[in-house]
């Protein structure tokens, strides 16, 4: 294996140096194993489960399908970048309250996808929620509480935005 020169990734607003990496490493691997950002999870290695979802230049992608060294100069956002530890975002809080979390392995990816969805479509229909989140597989919940969690956030944000 030939190690590469040093390269720098911009993750959650910070420049992070990556040294001695193997050329074939995915962004998921580098985030987890070299940068210690463990929120994104690997569960399929082929973009079929969404557990590794992150934002790259504001686009939701599977980090397992991003060649890490090709992401130099991109703005990468992971779950760690959404909210400080102990201060969950409204989406994160809704997941917990609505019962959308069981084993929790798919959860960080779904939090990324749901956050992205609500940023683009503030008031999604049931079908929009299902289509936009269809790239995130959950084996525990059967999705019902996840749909409920997204709806809760949409309602809460709408109510907060309305004049009293």
């Amino acid at each position: 294996m030939t190690a590469m020169e040093v390269y720098t990734l911009r993750v959650n607003g910070d420049d992070r140096e990556v040294a001695d990496a193997w050329l074939g490493e995915s962004l998921l691997y580098v985030l987890r194993e070299r940068l210690g950002l463990l929120a994104a999870k690997g569960a399929c290695e082929q973009g079929e489960c969404g557990s590794c979802s992150v934002l790259v230049d504001q686009h939701l992608v599977c980090s397992c399908l991003v060649l890490a060294a090709s992401a130099v100069g991109r703005e990468i956002v992971t779950v760690e970048g959404l909210a400080p530890v102990g201060v969950p975002s409204d989406v994160q809080r809704a997941f917990v309250d609505a019962g959308a979390v069981q084993c929790g392995f798919c959860t960080p990816g779904l939090v990324m996808a749901a956050t992205d969805l609500l940023d683009r479509i503030p008031d999604p229909t049931d079908m929009q929620i299902r289509e936009e989140l269809a790239g995130n597989v959950c084996r525990c919940t059967g999705y019902g509480r996840l749909v409920a969690a997204v709806q809760q956030v949409a309602v809460a944000r709408r109510e907060a935005g309305e004049p009293a």
Binding site: L38, A39, A40, K41, G42, T78, V79, E80, A83, V85, G86, P88, Q92, R93, F95, V96, D97, A98, G99, V101, G104, F105, T107, P108, V111
Partner: peptide, 30 residues
């Protein structure tokens, strides 16, 4: 899931590991 006095049997309190799981800090074996 709304108003509840205490998180006793028969109610639906939040999972104790819920916040860690949504924030990605829950430690899985991997």
């Amino acid at each position: 899931v709304g108003a509840r006095a205490r998180d006793v049997v028969g109610t639906s309190p939040a999972r104790p590991d819920g916040i860690a799981k949504v924030q990605g800090t829950f430690q899985f074996s991997s």
